[in-house]
């Protein structure tokens, strides 16, 4: 098992990245990847929830009876998601409207539950917090790349500012749902190929 903080970082960002190795938690966030700003806010929210859920679960792990731990974990997650939702509505009302139901859907994002089960149950609170944050980071960079491609080709903008020349023909497909599947599939393909190559090199 990963123990040192730097090893956890490497594991979560590349070797067992939640998105392209474990294929976890793509439900709630893939939907907002046609826009970089929304993606950043969504993934930061997810990072916050994962980190603090891990701390809480880790602190309470000896108090929660094993039989009901799933429902307790879900309630802890829901608690933090409500905080994120209220913060968003107070400070970024426009984004909150655009994200719509997807903020609430962070609750059912499998990464959070997965990390709480796999890591926080058996590790101390500080290390668990670090694990949650790095899992969020590993999630963030993959989705940022997808959002980057989708926003650039779909709208010709980056973070809402237009970067491509006037005459650029927008790729309508990039705004629609299928492109997210294609891009994620391609991304998994590339990363897996690199990984297979590295393994071959090591042998």
């Amino acid at each position: 098992m990963a123990d040192s903080p730097s090893k956890i970082l490497k594991e979560n960002i590349w070797y067992s990245n939640p998105v392209f190795i474990q294929i976890l938690g793509i439900c709630s966030t893939l939907a907002v990847t046609n826009n970089l700003i929304n993606t950043v806010i969504m993934t930061v929210g997810l990072m916050f929830v994962t980190g603090f859920t891990n701390v809480t679960v880790s602190l309470l792990k000896n108090l929660i009876p094993r039989k009901v731990r799933m429902i307790v974990q879900t309630l802890i997650i829901a608690f933090y998601v409500i905080i994120v939702d209220i913060l968003l509505r107070a400070y970024l009302p426009d984004v909150s409207k655009a994200l719509g139901p997807y903020v609430g859907l962070i609750i059912t994002n499998c990464i959070i539950m997965g990390r709480a089960e796999a890591f926080a149950q058996s590790n101390g609170p500080l290390l668990s917090f670090w694990d949650g944050i790095t899992s969020g980071l590993g999630y963030m960079w993959v989705l940022m790349i997808i959002a980057f491609v989708r926003e650039l080709l779909g709208f010709g903008t980056l973070f809402g500012m237009s970067v491509l020349p006037e005459g650029f023909t927008h790729w309508t497909i990039m705004v629609m749902a299928p492109s997210a599947f294609f891009l994620l599939g391609t991304f998994i393909w590339i990363s897996k190929t690199i990984m297979l190559k590295n393994e071959g090199g090591r042998k």
């Binding site: 793509i26 439900c27 893939l30």
Partner: peptide, 8 residues
């Protein structure tokens, strides 16, 4: 397929 829900 349009809302990406229930993927896991």
């Amino acid at each position: 397929l349009a809302n990406f829900l229930g993927m896991c």
